[in-house]
């Protein structure tokens, strides 16, 4: 496998145990786990947020110390929070911190933001704001996407549209995508690979169908699948 992301001993004191991880070009990987299991911490560790330590290489390059423009060409990070303090327009927010003209027209079109680019984000619904922030993460055309709950706040149709778009970006454009999700069905239907987190460490890593049927589900989530639906494990 041609690894686009290679992480060695990534850790955050008290939140994330030393973790080694690699993600291949063109791979869409879903990160699942109960609340507080370390999904966001792993994304923070890989993005170099806070007190993260360890070695991260994206396409063979260490992003540490790179200028913001170059760093965003390597990877971008979408946080779980959709809270924005300043009322910028959608167009300004998408272009924030990017080189002039870097805003991807295709991304704006795919996320159907064309008609709302001049609207202020504080006048949008949370779902619309989510799409604007996702567009911001995609706009620099990064090789690696680290997305924390990108489907949160989106209606079912938009969840399907977004996951289809992310699969396309991974499979047709060769991007590596790591996204934290709570919805196991989203993970089941979209991911090429599943990583299960528990107590700040990777508990299981493998093919989604196999993992979701494995005893890990019961041990980690306390649920099991019966007749196509998730139920609390007995």
């Amino acid at each position: 496998m041609n690894a686009l992301l290679a992480a060695k001993s990534v850790a955050i004191s008290g939140r994330l145990a030393e973790t080694c991880l690699s993600i291949g070009r063109g791979q869409l990987v879903c990160l699942v786990g109960p609340n507080g299991s370390g999904k966001t911490s792993l994304l923070h560790g890989l993005a170099g947020v806070g007190t993260a330590s360890g070695e991260v290489r994206v396409d063979g390059i260490d992003p540490k110390g790179l200028a913001p423009n170059r760093r965003q060409r390597l990877f971008t990070y979408l946080p779980a929070s959709r809270d924005l303090k300043w009322p910028l327009s959608a167009a300004d927010l998408i272009a924030l911190g990017l080189p002039r003209g870097a805003c991807s027209e295709e991304t704006v079109a795919r996320l159907e933001l064309g008609g709302m680019l001049e609207r202020r984000v504080d006048q949008m619904s949370t779902g619309e704001r989510s799409r604007v922030l996702i567009a911001r993460a995609l706009a620099p055309d990064p090789k690696l996407l680290l997305l924390d709950e990108p489907t949160a706040n989106l209606d079912p149709l938009w969840q399907l549209k977004l996951m289809a778009y992310l699969r396309e970006l991974a499979h047709d454009r060769g991007k590596a995508i790591l996204l934290a999700v709570h919805d196991l069905d989203v993970a089941l239907h979209s991911a090429d690979r599943l990583i299960m987190m528990q107590d700040g460490r990777v508990a299981a890593d493998g093919e989604p169908q196999a993992l979701l049927k494995s005893p890990h589900m019961k041990a980690i989530f306390g649920i099991e699948r019966h007749s196509g639906a998730w139920r609390p494990a007995c």
Binding site: L66, A67, P68, R71, T76, Y77, W86, L93, G97, R136
Partner: peptide, 19 residues
């Protein structure tokens, strides 16, 4: 100014961008 502007997206994103 660029670092302060990037804080609009939140501290985590500003740090991930490289500030």
């Amino acid at each position: 100014a660029p670092a302060l502007d990037s804080l609009t997206l939140g501290e985590e994103v500003a740090e991930a961008i490289g500030y």
